[in-house]
Structures are given as C-alpha cells and as structure tokens.
Design a protein around this nucleic acid. Structure first.
Lengths: 339, 339
DNA sequence: GTCAAAAATGACATCGATGACATTTTATAT
DNA sequence: ATATAAAATGTCATCGATGTCATTTTTGAC
C-alpha cells in the first residue's frame, strides 16, 4: 500500500506538502502541486482514511441493520435516515442482517469494529430481538429503537402512536356514518398490527358502541396478496362492511382491486382506508385516505438523539420514548356510508 | 472521549495491558484483568476503532453515493451491493448525493474523511458526472463505475451488454414472426437508453431487414406514466406494431395496461417485452418476457475489484471494463405474431 | 531457599495522516 | 537594491491503538 511518504519521496517534497495538495491545494504552488499529483497518479496513491480520521478525530457514523431491504417499510426508513443524516452532516453504514444467521454475534462484532460504528439504529422487527439487544449492551454499543413492541430500559425509542392513529381513522369513518367497519390486520410479528387493531376497538369503546364481532377482523400480513384474500372474506360476509380499514396502504390497494372486480364503487359502495401514506396510496384510483407516518421526522429524531451522545461521558440509562405526531390524510377513498 | 490511557491510569497498569485485556484476555492475570474491566466500565471506555484499524491495517468500507434511493434501479443495486458486501465480509457506507447540491465537493470530502471511505461505487447517472470523477481523482479516491455511458481511463467499470441484450430481444421477437416492432426508449440521460435503442437497429441490420421507421420509436423515461403515453401513441398508429419492446419492465407494465384497456390480448394480439426482470415483471399478468439484469453478479464484481485494491502496491492503471452476462427470460407476454 | 523457565507486564516504536510552528522562498514596495 | 511582508514549504509531535522486545514477577522443582 502506498503512503503519503512514498508520494512525497517521488515528488521530492515533504509529506506535509502532499497533504496540502490533498486538503488545501491553493496553498501549494502550481508547479509543485502538479508534480505531486503526477506522483500520486503514478503510484496510484489513495490516502488512508483511517489515519486521517484518527488525526482529525471525528465522530463515528451510525449503523443501520437491515433485515430485508426489499421491504417497503424498512426501505422508507432507510431512505428517511439517509436524508436525516445528510441534513445533519452525519454518515450511515448499512449492513444486511438476517436475524437467523447462526454467526450473528460475530457479524455484529465485525460491523462494530470494521464498520467503525458505535451507534446503531434498529427497526422492526430487529428492535424486538432481545438477544441482539443484550449482546449490544455487553459490547457497550448504543442503539435507538424505531417503533419497538416493548420499550427498553437501556435504549431510547422513537415511535408514533399507532393506536391513536388507528382510532382516528375509525372515528373518521364513524363521522361519515359507517357502522360496520372491517379491519384487515397486519403481520402478527409487528407490534404495529396489534396496536392498530386495538385502536379500532378503542374507537368503538370511546363512542359507546358495542365492539365489532370477530368476523370483521380479517388477518393480513401487510402484503398485497394476502390483502386480496382478506378482502374477499370481508366482502363475502352476509352483512358486508361498508368500510374497510386496512393495516397498511398495500393491503388497502388490494382491497380496492377486489372491490373494483366485484363492481363496487369506491367510496360510493365501499370506503377504503389505508395506513402509511406509501407511494401506492396516491398511485391507485381513487387515491387512498390514509395516515401519514412521520418517517422523516422520526429519522431526524433518531439522528438528534445520536448526536446528543457524541462526546457524552455517561449515558443515563433512563427509558426515553419519543412520540412523533402523525397526520390523517383524507383523500377520495372514504366517503359517506351508503344509506 | 476516554482513551486506553485513561483506563490504564485508573487501573494502575500500562496501556499495553489494557490492550491485552481487550484482545488476548488469557495472557493477563485474572486479578489484573478484573481491575481493568472495572476501570473500563466506570469510564465507559470504548476503543477507538480508527486507531485500531490504522494499526492493524484493516480495510476501509466502501462508499455508495445514491442520487435517488427511491429509484428502482438504484435501490436494486444498493441491495445487491449490500448482499455482496455481506458475502465478502465488507461494509458499506451510503450517502445521499444529489448532484445539483452547490456544495457537493465539500460533501464528498466529508464523506471520504468522516465516512472513512476510500473506495466509491458510482451508479448511473452519477458515474457520468465528469466533475465528480475529476474531483475524486484529485483526492486520490478510487471508484468503480457501474454501467457508465463512457468508460474512464482511471476508474474501472462493471457493465452489462445492453446493446446485445436488446438485440437478443428483438431477435426473439423476429423468431416469433413479428415484423413491426415498436420500441419505447428509456430516459434520455441514461446511456442504457441509447444502447438498447441501437441494439434494436442492430438486430434489423443483422437480419438484413430494412430499419424501422421513426414512428416505431416512442420516447419514454423508464417510468410507468410516460409508458402509458408512449403505448397509446404506438398502438394508435395506422399500422400498429404486433410487438412492443419497452426499455424497462415498468414501462412494459404500462404497455400491458394500455393493451388491456384497448381490449388487446397479450400475447395473442400484442407481444410485450420488458427489460430488467424487476419484481413488477412477474407481478403483472401475463408475466413479462424480459432480460434479467445481473445485479448481484455485477455487485460481486465491484466488491472483488475493490478487494483487489486492498494492499495493492501498484496496479496497471489501464481502463478495465468488466462485462457481466445477462439472460433472456421468456415468459408469457411474448408469443407468435398474429397472422 | 535457590534458580531456571514460564508468565505477566511494560517501554517504546509504529501505523499514516495532519496541526502547530519554524524556516525558506518569492513578491512587493521603497 | 534592499527591506519587509506574504507565500511556500519543511520539521516534528501527535491522534489511539498494538507489535516487538525488554524487563519484572511468578511458578515449581530441587
């Protein structure tokens, strides 16, 4: 590996001058600079970033463990975190981490050491993988959890209020006169599924209405395909619901498709509401009423928290939970109940 | 920030002993080790990974500059690179980089230094942004270009043969008896668009057929929406084509939609072919005949090249272009031409 | 209790870059 | 031509860890 000294020797200047060519080219005479660049080129020199960073003493980057980069949810957070990092002038190292890997501890270790990461961000469902959290604790690594099922004493969490958002949707449907509302749940492993479901019930309770029967809850998994099945089941009920609230937009899009296939107009015959404000929500027709998840705001929070850790001598050990406000977006897929 | 010296002082031992506790605990007496661990804990010591890597001579992580993480093309490469890194035990730091940012040079600088990155991966269209390449050269940063329009003397490139693949598609359609084939081009900024277009013409030339008239080339931009417009134009021609080759799968999906709307059956009345083998290709009905882009293979190549740079004393400095084989995937959207 | 071998520990140089400060060269004014 | 300021360059120390090798302590056999 060629170093700055090799270059300086070949160019007949001091190492410091080479360093200057790299970092403050204007302070070097043109002729010298050209000679140095020439030497750099012929030796294929490339500065050792570790040495630079050691000398300059910057902060470490944050690390993101990704279970499934193809998942819409994870990729949206991934993207939001990239944006938040850019805004804050921080950097992010991303690593594929499939929880079932037998050597996951070694992988985390190498990620922390070789990846030069100290602070991690854990998304669902990794943020609920207890062995990982325990392991991180023993390694002195810090982490922020995004939307965990269970809060943690050691790691702060950034969340949105899934239950309240869900309740808000149902109340929106109530206000349009809907009485029978079907709900397609999310994947059972996601705590959000449970929260959104219980938000539905909470809305009924708060309105003093009897809770809906179990036939109005169809199980989904956040994916289009399963959404089709669930929609078929709900719409085949003898007393079919006049509105369906799907646990996410992709599932809601599936509901819309099934409705169209059955000749039901939206929102004339059936109101459909989603959750996420994913791109698909405004791509389908009619555009979906949905909840905007505050991805970017949450990502910014995460970065803020980690920023606060820089140069911190001791971490509190308190549980901190940062709730981030969401927003109900009423579009064209929800309307008055058919009389 | 606490260092190994702070720990050694508190524990009353030498720094080297602390280092031993960290790296070869068995060579330290139990009592000493415990004292050191105690000190580490009370100071919340966490070793400076930069210093370690510098001493140990470890490799740096590779850096990926992403213009638009929402783009399917970029995100597929992103994902493939993550996988390839995982396989190779390397790490990747990702940074949002919108070329139009006025302070892009400073951002690159900080990415290289703070992000501790030495080797970059550039995707289209960044890999054709000459000022960036020039700047990287002056900084001694190394880079691998993925599918650049123009090869570079300094940076190796990993590519697939877009033109040959495109020609292969047209020849496939020829073999099914198609004579009038429409082509929807990709975004004009992508060299792939031009290559795919010229592959079409090459196929005609090779078959000794007269080149298709300009009316058979509709301009697209790789996106669904523009694909609809383009399809409408092609299918409204007085002598409409019996097959349409779209520059990517998303556009092809748009063509399929338009065809259905017009009551044309696929492939009975119209054959449709895409390019990419994106998820959408097998999600639409009928499943699209397409070209599988070798994302993962290309990503592995990139990682190999960068791996080869580690500890390299000097390398050729030649332009290297690594061609990666693609594959024609014949599904249900292409069939014999209507007689 | 003595002594050699083994174990434990420490001193110092080193990895490759850059900051602080010193020195030399060049430009500018007189 | 000389004085002086400004620009260009160089010297040396330093970031925080670990390798090398020297030194001290412990162990165990006699």
């Amino acid at each position: 590996m060629t170093t700055i000294y090799d270059v300086s020797r070949l160019a007949g200047v001091s190492a410091k001058t080479v360093s200057r060519v790299l970092n403050e080219p204007d302070r070097v005479k043109t002729k010298t600079r050209e000679a140095v660049l020439e030497a750099m080129k012929s030796l294929e020199y490339s500065p050792n970033s570790m040495a630079r960073q050691l000398r300059l003493g910057g902060g470490s980057s944050l690390g993101l463990l990704l279970e499934d980069p193809a998942s819409g949810y994870q990729s949206r957070f991934h993207q939001a975190l990239l944006t938040a990092c850019m805004e804050a002038g921080k950097h992010m190292t991303v690593e594929l981490f499939e929880g079932v890997m037998p050597d996951w501890q070694a992988r985390v270790d190498r990620f922390l050491t070789e990846g030069r990461v100290r602070d991690l961000v854990l998304l669902p469902t990794l943020c609920d993988f207890a062995p990982l959290k325990d392991y991180l604790r023993t390694k002195g690594a810090r982490a922020v959890l995004i939307a965990p099922s269970v809060y943690d004493t050691h790691f702060p969490a950034v969340v949105m209020d899934d239950r309240a958002a869900s309740r808000q949707i149902v109340e929106h449907l109530f206000s349009l006169g809907h009485k029978r509302i079907g709900h397609i749940t999310g994947h059972a492993d996601h705590s959000a599924s449970i929260l959104r479901r219980s938000g539905v019930i909470e809305a009924y309770d708060a309105a003093g209405l009897p809770r809906p029967g179990p036939e109005l809850f169809a199980s989904g998994d956040f994916m289009f395909k399963k959404g089709i099945e669930a929609a078929e089941i709900l719409l085949s009920l003898p007393d079919a619901p006049t509105a369906i609230f799907a646990a996410n937009d992709e599932t809601a899009a599936a509901v819309a498709m099934v409705a169209h296939k059955r000749g039901l107009s939206i929102p004339g015959d059936l109101s459909v509401v989603g959750f996420d404000d994913a791109p698909i929500a405004s791509a389908v027709w009619p555009a979906l009423t949905t909840i905007r998840q505050p991805y970017l705001e949450m990502a910014r929070r995460v970065v803020q928290i980690i920023d606060g850790w820089e140069g911190q001598t001791r971490s509190s050990g308190n549980t901190s939970v940062f709730m981030t406000p969401h927003e109900l977006i009423v579009r064209d897929s929800s309307g008055p109940a058919k009389v």
